[in-house]
Every structure is written in C-alpha cells, then in structure tokens.
Amino acid sequence: MDDAGLSGLAGGTAAVVASADLASLAAGGGRAGHGHGATGDCLNCGTALTLNARFCSQCGQDTANHPPSLFEFVHEFVSHYIAVEGTLWKSLWGLMARPGFLTREYLAGRKQRYVLPLRLLLTLGLLFFLALKLMPGSTHTLGRDGEEGDEVAQVVPDAASAASADSIAAAKFAKARKKISERSGDTTILSPDLASQLPQGMQDRVHRAETHWRADPKASMHAMGATMMGLAPYAVLCSLPFFAGLLKLLFWRQAYGAHFVFAMHLHAAWYGMLLVAVLLPWGLVVFVVWAWSNIYPVIALKRVHAASWWTTLLRAALLAVLHWFIIGLGLLALVMAGALAAA
C-alpha cells in the first residue's frame, strides 16, 4: 500500500475514533462524566478528569456543564441548606434524644457521620420560625383585633419560656403593650429623660414612632410584631457567642470553640422542641416539651464536661441566671427595634 493509502486509512480511523469519543461524551460516558458541554478537563481548575468522574478530584466541582433544571436546583438547595438527606435523621435522634451526644462526637473528631452544628441549627431554626409564622394563632397576628390577637403566644405556654424566650417573649410584650395602651392611651416609647440623651436623629425617629402609635395603634402594633419576628432569628444567632462565653466562664478548662459547638447544638435542640410544641400544641405534648427543655441542658452539660451532678447543677443554675440576663438585653433591643419600626 502506498503512502497515500496509508494516510487515508489513518485519517478514516481517526475520524471513527473521534466520532466514538463524541458519541461517548454526548451519552454522558466520557471522561468528563455527564451533562451538556462536558470536556475531558475540569472547567474550573483545568485538571484532567478520570473516566466517568462526576466531580473534579482537585477542586471538587461537578463535571456537568449545563444550566440546572428545576429539579436539580431544588435538590441542590434542599441538600445544602435544609439538610434533609444523608445523616439528618441519625443526627436528629442524637440531638433530641441524647443530650450532649453530638457535641461529644464532634469534639472526638467524628464529624462526617452527622449534620454539622451550624447547618443543624439553621435548619431547625428555619423550620421553627416558618411554622411559627404559618400556624394559626402564631405571632404573625400581632396587632390584630379580636380573639386571635388575644391568643398570641398561647401556641407554646409560659412554661416553655426557658427555651423560647427569644421568640415568644415578643408576643407577650405586644399583648401587654396592647392592653396597656387600651387602658391608658400611653404611647411613650422612652421616658423623656432617656430620650433626651439619644442623638438628635434617634430622638426624631422616636418622636415619629410615638406619633404613629397615636395615629394608628393597630398598624403600629402589627409593624412592631413583624419587625421583632423578623429580627428574632438573628438575635438568637448573635446571642450564641455570648452564651459560649458564659460556658467558658463556668467550664474554663474547655476551649471556647468547644463551648460554641455546644451552644449551637443546645439551641438547635431547643428549636426542635419548640417546633414540636408549635406543630402539636396539645397539653401533654407541650408539658413534655417544657420538662425536657429544662432537663436537657443539665444532662448535656454533665455528659460533655464529665463533672459531678452537684457541680453540674450548680453551674447550670448560674448559667440559667446569666443567660436570662442576656436574653433580657436582647429582648429589650428587639422591643426598641420593633417600636421604632413604625417610624
């Protein structure tokens, strides 16, 4: 065979191989894995991809190069932000039924088996505040007249306040404020002496808020409740470093980071308990939630720090007092923010 024939045969073979490669890539079986526009290299870092790789071994990016479908987008959101897959159910059992268990596992280095503390906290917090807003009689009715407004904060009773102060105390204040206003017509947000010490811009805002309270109490109450409910999740997150600081003062031998992990797990558990109480507002269920919310921290502290029962009880009591002080300051800030929202 002459050189021209060999050249033609080589060209034909190359064409067949190229066609097979293109077909393989189009079918999702190429080196890039799957998806439209897949190549043999990672589009993010340029690393050569192994056969049928779904993710880059260097940077972790997926190999599918196409706009996500609606199902893929929802799946991505749920798996990353709501955490309903994989280890969630095992994590929930360890969180709700075994106080201190997840913190001990995390500090022992067994992290991959369970949902990470921050994701667990955000997931349960999101579900709780969503349920609190959507369930009948919840705090989204603040500022309304009639029996619905009078039943605000009755979804979870007073007894559960140890775990729910950050979210339900807002409703209690709004209810009390409404009754006081109906009796006396008082619309003073701050005392004159305290208001005079504020910057001029803040004084003007307080004055506008009081004017709105006098003109339309119902709308002002509703705006106040909506603002407080919107800020409550952020208030809880902002309180975590202070709560961890209190733990550091009481259990000084443990590193601050370990206390922060404990704080996230504890508040996630409280969110889970409150979620149960909101979804199942029955007397027995609410009583069990209240009892467990008060017993849970003591057992968790005992297991994580391996102290004696008397030492744990004494420090837990002191922690509760200091924590309520922080909650009071945070609630005061929420009340002020809610009252000024009408301005």
Rank of each mutant, 00 (worst) to 15 (best):
A4Y: 07
G8W: 09
A14G: 15
V16M: 07
S19V: 11
D21R: 14
A27F: 10
G28A: 06
A53N: 11
F55I: 01
C56R: 01
T63K: 00
N65E: 03
H66I: 05
P68E: 08
S69A: 01
L70Q: 11
F71L: 09
E76S: 14
Y81R: 03
E85S: 15
W89H: 05
W89E: 03
K90C: 04
F101V: 00
K111Y: 05
G125S: 07
R144G: 06
G149W: 12
D150P: 04
S164C: 09
S164D: 14
S167G: 06
A174D: 11
I180K: 09
G185A: 04
D186I: 10
T187V: 09
I189C: 06
S191H: 12
L194R: 13
A195D: 08
S196I: 05
S196W: 05
Q200T: 13
Q200K: 09
Q200N: 05
Q203F: 01
D204C: 00
E210H: 02
A223Y: 05
Y234S: 04
C238Q: 12
L240S: 05
L247E: 11
W270E: 09
Y271H: 03
M273T: 02
L275Y: 11
V276N: 09
A277V: 10
V278N: 06
V278T: 13
L280K: 05
V285A: 07
W290Y: 10
W292Y: 11
I295C: 10
Y296K: 08
S308P: 08
T311C: 03
T312K: 06
H323Q: 13
H323W: 15
G328N: 01
G328D: 01
L331F: 12
A337R: 07
A343R: 02
